[in-house]
Every structure is written in structure tokens, then in C-alpha cells.
């Protein structure tokens, strides 16, 4: 269902482990909000069991009935056969589109797509390393319809990989570019759980302590500057990537869809502000001023979009 609006809005996967009631309340708000697409699923740690695959599927049905496009994401770092089994369950179902988190997902999706034409096309997630047009041309024929560039890829490179006037084509037509436009950035993955390590717990007996931190566990430099966030096996930026003022640059780069990554406070308003700026006639500077007053978990940065260090604060 193509969006009639200039920019589609996607709610990215929930990277944290929230209590069940909080998760349900969050998606109830999303169902009523302006985002047209929602990515669901556990992408960080297979030990998080409060929301199992069956729960995500039930949530997917509900959001679909509320008129949302639903995408099921696979885990970014897959190391065990049990995780591969979950990944196959996600990739082999036919009801919802899938976002590939790694090459294992590409393998399974490629097979499934070849076996049954007409399945929903998939999303090339931000942890698949597509840095050039030639790379996207390798992945798209497997059945991709949407590409989310790696976090560190600048907009000038995004424009060269999938230019608006000369899109890479997948089986379902030209590939859509969806840029990570808001939220703490997933920067790295490890076999080791840094949250458990901080609490001096073993990974397999972690007491699920990542539940304590709704926006991850803040890591400061020795001089007290917020720098990174520990989120289980994932390391995020402490600052939030924010492209609310970059509408012309995004348009020039061929981006037609924005990904907003969940945070525990103010997210409903964040969605409304992005919708107003990108699909209405709201002024970006006023929206930015309001974002900065929402009590978001970190400062706003946009260095990656401009081929700078990712932590660089917003350009004037």
C-alpha cells in the first residue's frame, strides 16, 4: 500500500526490553499515530522472552488491522542454531514482510522467495553491509523492496547507491530508500552482554537486568560526558540521531521513508513532529526546538549524514 504522502514513516524495532504492559501501551499509541509502517520483533537478544515470536505475531495482526504495514525483523547477530530456527520461522512465514538482520536471513529469504513467488518483498536492514550500488544490486534481486543504509553511510553516498532518478530494481520494482532519521543509533554488537557484565552477572544468568534501563544503560566518559549506551549485547550512541532539519538533503538523496527508533519518553510527539515537517507544512526549526524540550534521553546529532563523526551535533 504505497503512501500518498511524500515521506513514509517507519517505527523501527524496539531495541530495549520493556515490561510487557509498557510494550503493549507503546504500540497502542503507535497504532493511533501517523507512522504507516511498524517493524516488530526482537533484534538484540534471544534471551529476552517477555515478548516471544508468537506475541510479536499477535501484535503484528493487531497493528495490521489498525491499518499499519507490518515488518518482522530478524536478530542482527545470530550465533546459535536455536536463533537460526527462530530466524527461519520469521523468514518463512508469508503474512508479513521481513527485515533481514544478517546474511543468514538473506540466505533463508532468498530460498523462500525463489520457492514461492508473490511473497511479500523484504527489507534490507541497516546491519547488512550495503555501502555501494553494486552491493545493493547483488541483494535486491533476492526479493528486496526497501533498503535501510548502514548508520555510518553519509547521505551523499546514499544518493549514489540508489539515486532517485535511477533506482536499483528488485523483483517488485524500484527499491525504496529508508533512512534512520531519529533515535539512539545501534553502533555495534558483541557476543558478550555488557549490561550483564556491568552487573557482574553471567550472560546466561543475567537476571534480565536490561529491563531496568528503558533507554539502555548510559556510559559516560571519565569527565562525565554521555558517550555510549549499553543495551545488552548491543552498543548504542548516547546521543540521538536526528534528521528533522534535513528534508532537502534527504529528498536529494532519494530517501522517501524515515525510520524513527523508539525511546521511552516523548515518542508519540516525535512521530507527530516528523510527520508535520515531512508531510505537512510545519517549520523544521520550530519542530526541532520542541524536540529539544521533550526530555529525550540524549542530545541530538547528525554527523553521519554529513560524512562527519557520528557524534557531531546538529549542523546549524
Amino acid at each position: 500500500m504505497p503512501s500518498p504522502r511524500p515521506f513514509g514513516l517507519t517505527v523501527g524495532p524496539l531495541p530495549y526490553w520493556w515490561p510487557r504492559a509498557a510494550t503493549i501501551a507503546f504500540y497502542a499509541d503507535v497504532a493511533d499515530g501517523p507512522a504507516d509502517t511498524v517493524v516488530l520483533g526482537e533484534t538484540v537478544c534471544s534471551r529476552r522472552h517477555e515478548f516471544k515470536l508468537a506475541d510479536w505475531l499477535a501484535m503484528a495482526v493487531e497493528l495490521a488491522s489498525a491499518g499499519k504495514q507490518v515488518v518482522l525483523a530478524t536478530q542482527a547477530l545470530v550465533t546459535s542454531e536455536a536463533e537460526l530456527r527462530t530466524l527461519r520461522q520469521v523468514c518463512e512465514q508469508d503474512h508479513f514482510a521481513v527485515e533481514a538482520g544478517d546474511a543468514s536471513a538473506l540466505a533463508v529469504l532468498g530460498r523462500a522467495q525463489a520457492a514461492r513467488r508473490g511473497r511479500p518483498p523484504f527489507v534490507v536492514g541497516p546491519h547488512i553491509n550495503v555501502y555501494s550500488r553494486a552491493a545493493l544490486e547483488e541483494v535486491a534481486p533476492l526479493g528486496a523492496a526497501t533498503w535501510v543504509p548502514p548508520l555510518e553511510l553519509p547521505l551523499d553516498a546514499v544518493a549514489r547507491v540508489n539515486p532517485p532518478a535511477d533506482r536499483v530494481r528488485g523483483p517488485a520494482g524500484p527499491v525504496v530508500t529508508e533512512a534512520f532519521a531519529f533515535g539512539r543509533m545501534p553502533l555495534a554488537f558483541s557476543a558478550r552482554c555488557f549490561t550483564a557484565r556491568h552487573h557482574r552477572l553471567k550472560k546466561d544468568e543475567c537476571d534480565f537486568r536490561c529491563r531496568d534501563d528503558a533507554d539502555g544503560l548510559l556510559l559516560l566518559t571519565t569527565e562525565g560526558r554521555p558517550f555510549l549506551v549499553l543495551n545488552g549485547i548491543q552498543t548504542q550512541s548516547a546521543a540521538l540521531h536526528c534528521l528533522i532539519g534535513a528534508r532537502p538533503a534527504l529528498q536529494a538523496a532519494g530517501v522517501t521513508r524515515l525510520r524513527l527508533s523508539p525511546c521511552s519518553r516523548g515518542f508519540t510527539r516525535v512521530l507527530a513532529l516528523f510527520d508535520g515537517v515531512f508531510n505537512g507544512d510545519a517549520a523544521a526549526d520550530a519542530a526541532l526546538a520542541e524536540l529539544q524540550s521533550l526530555g529525550l534521553p540524549g542530545a541530538l546529532v547528525d554527523g553521519f549524514a554529513r560524512r562527519r563523526a557520528g557524534m557531531q551535533t546538529l549542523s546549524a
Partner: peptide
């Protein structure tokens, strides 16, 4: 799959 270095240095 680690962008920590580019986050701090580009």
C-alpha cells in the same frame, strides 16, 4: 558491524 570508531572520528 562496528561503527564505534566512525561515531567518534568519522
Amino acid at each position: 558491524r562496528c561503527a564505534l570508531s566512525s561515531y567518534a572520528t568519522g
